[in-house]
């Protein structure tokens, strides 16, 4: 597994598009496993260490000795994209359910209800749309949001992943936040 993922990352950063297709399900499975483990171990009172999970997945999947630092950036890029997809799909399902699409709507546990309530603060579907628009104007800024917001990377990690300075990430982040917020508000 380690070698497989490491090799795929390598091939992908060397420009092999197929490698990505094979990488995605591997990373997704491991993310899912890690999330499960995390949710089970967590004892209700803890907030998630934002990068811990992706980091854990990365350490688990990638052979550290065999890999170049860029691989890590690529890996986080993939993870961020996946997280975005997971969340957006989730939001879409919820919306569907709220419209009464699923009559047998199960009761939410307290925790689910909390997550659900917070979700109401930020319309993820709208954010997804805004982010797609932003990517047309400014792909890097869109990427910064993806890494920061969806994969939980900090400034330094994001800078590493995008191979830019921390100051640039900070500027991109500020601008992107303002732009996204305005977009989402105006669209409402």
């Amino acid at each position: 597994m380690e070698h497989e993922v490491t090799g795929l990352l390598q091939r992908w950063s060397d420009g092999d598009k197929e490698a990505l297709d094979r990488l995605v399900p591997l990373v997704y499975d491991e993310l899912r496993r890690a999330a499960r483990r995390y949710m089970r171990d967590e004892n209700n009172n803890h907030t998630l260490q934002t990068t811990a999970l992706v980091n854990e997945v990365y350490l688990r999947l990638v052979d550290q000795k065999q890999t170049r630092w860029q691989n890590r950036a690529h890996f986080f890029g993939i993870a961020a994209g996946m997280m975005r997809r997971i969340l957006v799909d989730h939001a879409r399902r919820r919306k569907y359910q709220k419209r009464g699409g699923d009559a047998a709507f199960v009761q939410l546990s307290l925790r689910e209800a909390e997550a659900f309530a917070r979700e109401e603060d930020l319309d993820l579907l709208k954010l997804d749309e805004a982010l797609t628009e932003l990517a047309k104007l400014d792909p890097r800024r869109s990427r910064v949001v993806e890494l920061r917001f969806f994969a939980g990377l900090d400034m330094k990690e994001t800078a590493e992943a995008l191979h830019v300075s921390i100051a640039t990430v900070l500027r991109d982040w500020n601008m992107a936040k303002a732009w996204l917020y305005r977009y989402m508000k105006d669209e409402r």
Binding site: A35, L48, I86, R118, L122, V145, A151, R182
Partner: peptide, 27 residues
């Protein structure tokens, strides 16, 4: 208008959606 949005957006994106994703995966 961007500057105005920037002030209003303070805090909105600060909590990564990541935790939610983890919960979602687990669920």
């Amino acid at each position: 208008s961007l500057l105005g949005s920037y002030e209003q957006a303070a805090g909105v994106f600060d909590e990564p959606a990541f935790e939610r994703a983890a919960r979602e995966l687990a669920q």
